[in-house]
Nucleic acid binder design. Structure first.
Length: 887
RNA sequence: GCCGAUGUGGCGAAAUGGCAGACGCAACGGACUUAAAAUCCGUUUCCUUUAAACGGGAGUGUGGGUUCGAGUCCCGCCAUCGGCACCA
């Protein structure tokens, strides 16, 4: 490769301009109040999802989104905006820690090396980041504020009245620890033995860890949780005003999984509950998770003092007359209380069997329903029928109340279960145009039947009336449930933010803000303990906070740092505040939008992880008065995955990974950037092609040779063809057409077609004997965001010779197109007969519809086609076509 | 199973309801060259007529529909990809 002569000296040019930008700090953006800040310009905040600096360096997928945002950033600067375009490092994370486990090298050392490598690679591509704003989540000056935000969350609660987070001091209840937005709970969590840590639901895919693909088990552990469920409704509602892809909004809505329905209380039938202890139990334990809620409901206090009840959640209260059995999740705490002696052994056996199953076996792989009878019975409050209570693992302890009423007539799963265990099946909703019998298995809305209270009512009304009836009679109430669970926020890791928390006499307590940052101790051994105890527990000195207090030894998940980095970019050096008020208001306070970052580009893999977590933190900080907007990201764009040349996902094992370095070595940074954008629409998945890079490189070389010609000795000089002349009419048309198209295309992120248009421009000038200087200067500005090195060099060359303005392209103005050059005096009109193309003709733009009709009918090809037919209609579309309908 | 996205030449793709295939790749032909590379010019959806040219027909996964006119809008189906997945 190396011997092939370069089509233009991109290697020299790239280095030269990167050095100039670095030296002049061309892309540094001052904050309000700082030197050189221009308040007269509008602001634009364009952000990339910052990378985890892995040891393997960048592949060509990373810079796809980065190139898109860089083009927008450079374009907006040329349009006179103050542009915030930063980059940083999501630097806490597993690989550095695992490397440390293998080698003993401190993760901070590995991280520093990887960051240096990433940064060098990004700089080679010529991105116009403001490197003075670089942040690193593993830097104590950064994570000090991550810990500070945690304290804010810890010291807040969600007031359901105001629907906002408020300082915990405003809470009037007895125990603030019950309502904090950060709390400790012993719950079944996703424990991954291989990784030695627990994981959030969002990090578990098909029962395996998202990182590494190791099996994950359910295990009850004491962990830190963040009360994201308090924000479930707002996280759904406040998506509405955002310019995000509908598919991502939908993904988030589905993940939150709001469903409206009712809670219904089923009394346990005393006649069958032989174990007197169960009946005598005075704790109205009704739900595995929502005890607090039920404890507050007024109608329950009245009736359940003496009797245990089973509370279920259903979205179909209108089907209650069809409920002829109940199921408790195997983990449901009431199972032990209600099971009869006769069935205790089989229930116990069943529970053991279930607990040995992985999530995968319990869900995806479960082909047949399983379950056992508890021996106990409940009473259906609608018809007082005595119905058996079973336990079965198709009911999940983590959703709703962990118990259901079985309605085999109108629920697929219940029908499966009923068929397997031979329960009767009663239709209670009649499907449209079906008989009652045929309505078994019908899941949609119909008419209530066999249901005295609501007979004849259509489903929506039947639901309402049934809920009202249940409420009136003290058997239930309307309720909303979510799939979203609270966010499991602690990890058993070394390389993460320590919690600013100490434990004293079994209770947690927040450290004071001025004790931050809490820096992790040096360790010799970073290995997970394997017991679920975090590695920090090994630092015996460090964990002793005082004679009576011990430090929390869990660390925060990697998401913590990325939850607010976009805020820190606004004011990264601030040691007084997580972000200065003025800077936050300026960069994050866009007028008339709910969000602050104007354009956020990144991978779709964060649709329900980072993007949900960051929105949650943002709302808490907004509620507490620290931020200007309710949402962090106004416009979101997901770039498509770049596949290998073999159309497969890029991976080391397939050997199809392309590194930006090899591409830049051979074709230069500008060709790399342009190809990334020319491949196809930004959001689309598309395969890499080295041939394609070559094509784009040829285009850039043609631009070079429009302006430069090669001497005998192989050096380049400015072409004599460039003259200070006015472009002719045809040239004006293409110049202004290109200005218009490229401008519109950048605004809509259609970079591929913008490049196509510039190719057309260049092709049009390629063999011109005289090339107007102004045309070239326009082209260089338009192409600059895409190919900044090449255009800067050529701009300078032209400026030197023609003494035309400053020789720095970055201080130029984006051109505006002039519509007068785009209007034509004559247009081509398409002639159709019955919608089929027959001929074309040129007519004056001033021709009337009548003129055009007459000319069309006089056209010989048209005459031929309509010969012997009757004309029914003639459609004239001005400047476009004539369609003659004839038969 | 449910939800969503996408189906256009040999390939990446383009097309406010109005000339399908812009632009690029690959391929083929030509110019330049002793030769090659590079560069420049041209051809290139498929079928078909013809000695050749001019022609003719079909065509955007598939079947319908709306419309003077559909790649584009509507309904059904098929395929691929992605998400969720016993969520009551």
């Amino acid at each position: 490769m190396s011997e092939r002569r370069k089509p233009y000296p991109f290697d020299v040019i790239d280095q030269k301009w990167q050095a100039i930008w670095e030296e002049k700090q061309s892309f540094h953006t001052p904050n309000p109040g700082e030197k050189d800040f221009d308040p007269g310009r509008p602001k634009f905040y364009v952000l990339d999802m910052f990378p985890y600096p892995s040891g393997t360096g960048l592949h060509v997928g990373h810079p796809e989104g980065y190139t898109a945002t860089d083009i927008v950033a450079r374009y907006k600067r040329l349009r006179g905006f103050n542009v915030l375009h930063p980059m940083g490092w999501d630097a806490f994370g597993l690989p550095a820690e695992q490397y440390a486990i293998r080698t003993g090298q401190h993760p901070s050392v590995t991280t520093r090396e990887n960051v240096a490598k990433f940064k060098a690679q990004l700089k080679r591509i010529g991105f116009s980041y403001d490197w003075q704003r670089e942040v690193n989540t593993s830097d104590p000056r950064y994570y000090r504020w991550t810990q500070w935000i945690f304290l804010k969350i810890y010291n807040s609660w969600f007031n359901p009245q105001t629907r906002k987070a408020e300082p915990i001091s405003t809470y009037r209840g007895n125990n603030p620890d019950d309502v904090r937005l950060a709390y400790v709970a012993k719950v079944p969590v996703n424990w991954c033995p291989q990784l030695g840590t627990v994981l959030a639901n969002e990090e578990v895919v098909d029962g395996k860890s998202e990182v590494g693909g190791f099996p994950v088990e359910r295990k009850p552990m004491r962990q830190w949780m963040l009360r994201i469920t308090a924000y479930a409704d707002r996280l759904i509602e406040e998506l509405d005003g955002l310019a995000w892809p509908e598919s991502i909004k939908l993904l988030q809505r589905n993940w939150i999984g709001r469903s409206e329905g009712a809670e219904i209380d089923f009394a346990i039938d005393l006649g069958s509950a032989r174990d007197s202890r169960a009946v005598a139990g005075d704790s109205p334990e009704t739900s595995a998770l929502d005890q607090k809620k039920s404890g507050e409901s007024p109608d329950q206090a009245r009736e359940s003092r003496a009797l245990p009840i089973i509370r279920v959640f259903t979205t179909r209260p209108d089907t209650i007359y069809g409920a002829n059995y109940m199921v408790l999740a195997p983990e449901h705490p009431l199972v032990d209380q209600i099971v009869t002696e006769e069935h205790r052994a089989s229930v116990q056996q069943y529970r053991v069997r279930v607990s040995a199953k992985s999530d995968l076996e319990r869900t995806v792989l479960a082909k047949e329903k399983t379950g056992v009878f508890t021996g106990a019975y409940a009473v259906n409050p609608a018809n007082n029928a005595k119905i058996p209570i079973w336990t079965a693992d198709y009911v999940l302890v983590g959703y709703g109340t962990g118990a259901i009423m079985g309605v085999p007539g109108h629920d697929e799963r219940d029908l499966d279960f009923a068929q397997k265990f031979a329960f009767p099946v009663v239709p209670v909703v009649q499907a449209p145009e079906k008989t009652a019998e045929e309505s078994v298995g019908f899941l949609g809305d119909g008419i209530a039947i066999n249901s005295p209270v609501i007979d004849g009512l259509p489903t929506p009304e039947a639901k309402k009336k049934m809920i009202a009836w249940l409420k009136e009679n003290g058997h239930g109430r309307a309720n909303v449930n979510y799939k979203l669970r609270d966010w499991l926020f602690s990890r058993q890791r070394y390389w993460g933010e320590p919690f600013p928390i100490v434990w004293e006499a079994g209770k947690h307590r927040a450290l004071d803000e001025n004790e931050l940052p809490v820096v992790p101790p040096e360790l010799e051994d970073y290995k997970p303990t394997g017991t679920g105890e975090p590695p920090l527990a090994k630092a015996k000195e460090w964990i002793r906070y005082s004679d009576v207090a011990m430090r929390e030894t869990n660390t925060m998940p990697q998401w913590a740092g990325s939850c607010w980095y976009y805020l820190r970019f606004c004011d990264p050096q601030n040691d007084e505040r997580f972000v200065g008020e003025k800077a936050e208001r300026y960069w994050m306070g866009s007028a008339d939008t709910p969000g602050g970052v104007d354009l956020y580009v990144g991978g779709i893999e964060h649709a329900v992880l980072h993007l949900l977590y960051a929105r949650f933190w943002h709302k808490v900080l907004f509620d507490l008065g620290y931020l200007s907007k309710t949402e962090p990201f106004q416009q979101l764009v997901n770039q498509g995955v770049i596949l290998g040349e073999d159309n497969q996902k890029m991976s080391k094992s397939r050997g199809n990974v392309v590194s930006p370095d090899e591409v830049i070595d051979e074709y230069g940074a500008d060709a790399f950037r342009c190809y990334e954008m020319f491949m196809g629409p930004l959001v689309q998945m598309k395969p890499w092609s080295m041939r394609g890079v070559e094509g784009v490189a040829r285009f850039l070389a043609r631009v070079w040779r429009l302006i430069m010609i090669e001497r005998q000795d192989g050096t380049w000089e400015l072409s004599e063809a460039i003259r200070e002349v006015e472009p002719d009419k045809a040239q004006q048309k293409i110049i202004h057409g290109t200005i218009k198209k490229v401008t519109e295309d950048i605004e809509t992120l259609s970079f591929n077609t913008a490049i196509s248009q510039m190719m057309i421009f260049v092709n049009a000038f390629t063999n011109a004997e005289v090339i107007p200087l102004s045309a070239m200067r326009t082209l260089l500005v338009l192409l600059n965001p895409f190919a900044p090195h090449l255009t800067s060099e050529l701009w300078e060359k032209l400026a030197e010779k023609f003494h035309a303005g400053p020789n720095d392209l970055t201080s130029q103005k984006w051109p505006a197109h002039d519509e007068q050059w785009l209007v034509e005096d004559e247009v081509e009109i398409v002639l159709q007969v019955n919608g089929k193309l027959r001929d074309r003709m040129r007519v004056s733009i001033l021709a009337s519809d009548e003129d055009i009709k007459a000319a069309a009918l006089a056209n010989p090809k048209v005459e031929e086609s309509i010969a012997g037919k009757t004309i029914h209609k003639i459609v004239v579309v001005p400047k476009k076509l004539v369609n003659i309908v004839a038969a």
